[in-house]
Design a protein around this nucleic acid. Structure first.
Lengths: 234, 234
DNA sequence: TACCGGCAGTGACTAAAGTCGCGCTGCTAC
DNA sequence: GTAGCAGCGCGACTTTAGTCACTGCCGGTA
């Protein structure tokens, strides 16, 4: 699974964590990393396993999630190239708090706990960078908690539709058009619910004239109306 | 609000974050901290405000929470003496992600963002300690997400009863006895729900013969039965 | 072409969560 | 004392979430 690294240092530099290291420092770190390849659907590690080191996504996408006994999943984050995964358990010594799976074929740079630890002691600014990254992660988790505890599934769904429309929607005479990037099942996992509710709520929004649904193709007909749903009673 | 510090350095040492600093280092840090006093119910800061620095609880208890537009609250953590609050926004520069209020009269040691930042650059081991503390916090947040998304309120309530029974319950001929530490309203906030459901669920557990309720006095009559509820279908 | 597997829509139902309103208690301040 | 207030119990109801079972669509493949 591990490979020669044609340009591992360059890949590392793009990660944000290491963006302001000197080339020689990068080289040093690169020497300590192992490149791993995962195919779509393969687990990087599972919740509860002891933490062995830091993972950095250099290609592909991974999903961080928890699974319930009854088989439901709750997605905590989806990370793409340049993101690090499991920065935290590396430091507190505990097991991984969640599982991580490759969504597409992915390439991961791996640094062992011990090496990364040592590296942070020598480079306090890297430690601070890690803290900043972790800060962002914590904010996202708090955001998820807020959603789970204060909003309905309908509102969460509307929120993701609005986000998608803004991110990748195209303005047309009919409204803002875009395609759902994932299956209903996957969306349900991200919102912490089940497939059926996604289906039903989409249909309900259509019935109310706010959107138009055709399989994964969505047309937002009343953006104002959608946003109104987000304000109300949340 | 700020005071002379009879022994601020000693207080700092108890915080875990700074437990392995030398006395002179502590002295240096203590020189940079400000002591603040808050009375019960007073806000340390509110969600969304820019982050000014690190807060360390040296006496009393504080509650970290989010508020919804409709007035509901979700407690993220309750911290006692020795805990730090807002370690994270200090580093990523963003605003506070949640509000913090003093539950009892409390004494807080405050270090400004800039000072703490500088201190971490000079003492990489402190930065790593911060990471470990933050790791624990992140685990708790993930735990909350897991609860919110996979369990019913009934199960969450049973879980807290079991925890309380183990922590401060007394074995008597009738069962394990203890007192609820908070009002129903506060318990509801911690579980992310409303007062009535706490009341109802307690009554229901009583009706099922698992516990005996008399105001805040609880007697667990069937611990085995309670634990069974936690296993099932979560 | 026929079959199969993944995905989506839907009806019927149950259970859980949340809302509203009211009444009771016990405490504390005046 | 008693007026006021916070905490709690509870009934009646609505809304939201989740479950189960089934149907249909489409694309790949034997």
């Amino acid at each position: 699974m591990s490979h020669e690294s044609p340009n591992l240092a360059a890949a590392l530099q793009k990660t944000g964590l290491f963006s302001n290291l000197t080339p020689s420092e990068l080289q040093l770190l690169a020497a300590r990393t192992v490149r791993k390849l995962f195919s779509a659907g393969e687990l990087l590690f599972s919740e509860g396993e002891p933490c062995t080191g830091l993972h950095i996504v250099s290609r592909g996408k991974v999903r961080i999630f928890k699974t319930s006994m009854s088989g439901r999943e709750q997605v905590l984050a989806v990370e793409g190239p340049g993101s690090s995964v499991a920065e935290l358990p590396v430091f507190d010594g505990g097991p991984y708090p969640a599982s991580v799976v490759a969504l597409e074929d992915a390439e991961i740079a791996f640094v062992s706990r011990r090496d990364f630890h040592a590296y942070c002691m020598e480079h306090p600014d890297v430690a601070l960078k890690v803290l900043a990254v972790v800060g962002a992660r914590l904010r996202r988790l708090v955001g998820i908690i807020e959603e789970l505890s204060f909003t309905t599934i309908r509102q969460r769904l509307v929120a993701t539709l609005v986000k998608l429309a803004q991110a990748e929607g195209k303005q047309t005479p009919l409204g803002i058009e875009f395609r759902l990037p994932d299956s209903h099942q996957e969306i349900a996992n991200q919102l912490g619910t089940v497939r059926e509710l996604i289906s039903r709520n989409l249909m309900r929004l259509q019935a109310e004239g706010l959107i138009e649904v055709d399989a994964r193709h969505i047309v937002v007909k009343d953006m104002r109306g959608l946003n109104a749903l987000l304000e109300a009673s949340s």
